[in-house]
Amino acid sequence: MKKISITLTVNGQKKTVEVTPNERLIDVLRYRLDLRSVKAGCLKGECGSCLVLMNGKPVKSCLILAAEADGSEITTVEGLGSLNKPALIQKAFIEAFGYQCGFCTSGFILLGHWILENMPDASEEEIKEILNGILCRCTGYKQIIEAIKLAQKWKRERK
């Protein structure tokens, strides 16, 4: 099995990693680059705990080979903000109780972030449509949806 050298821009930083063909993007992000927010819940594309933004689009990183991702830009929740400098969507998740156990949370926050960036005026129905791609077992989704709507409102008010 030949090793492949790939370069990713992860949360704004260029990273070059040697991977084997059977390594997935999730494996590289978690275990090579120590981005543990990327979680594996099913390795089958059902749960979305491994969701990241790849070239600005939400993808499930358990169904992408690391080699396929060569040259791409990856955003994980670590790249959005920190407690001292939270992204709008992160603040909204805290304020609206948009998480419980936290295992699926990174995926939902990234989807929420994507909605804010790409569909800031998305209706509740449109938000749900997008969130349908990933699973949460704790929250019943309601406070997640409320968090995204809160962030939308903050964003509108800022303008």
Binding site: K44, G45, L63, I64
Partner: peptide
């Protein structure tokens, strides 16, 4: 052939498909 990979990678992990080569056409 690997295009999106959303079926293929599941089948590979579950041993439903056993390719020796994966050709990424993206």
């Amino acid at each position: 052939i690997l295009a999106g990979g959303t079926d293929l990678l599941v089948d590979i992990r579950m041993r439903a498909k056993k390719p020796k080569y994966v050709i990424d056409i993206k």
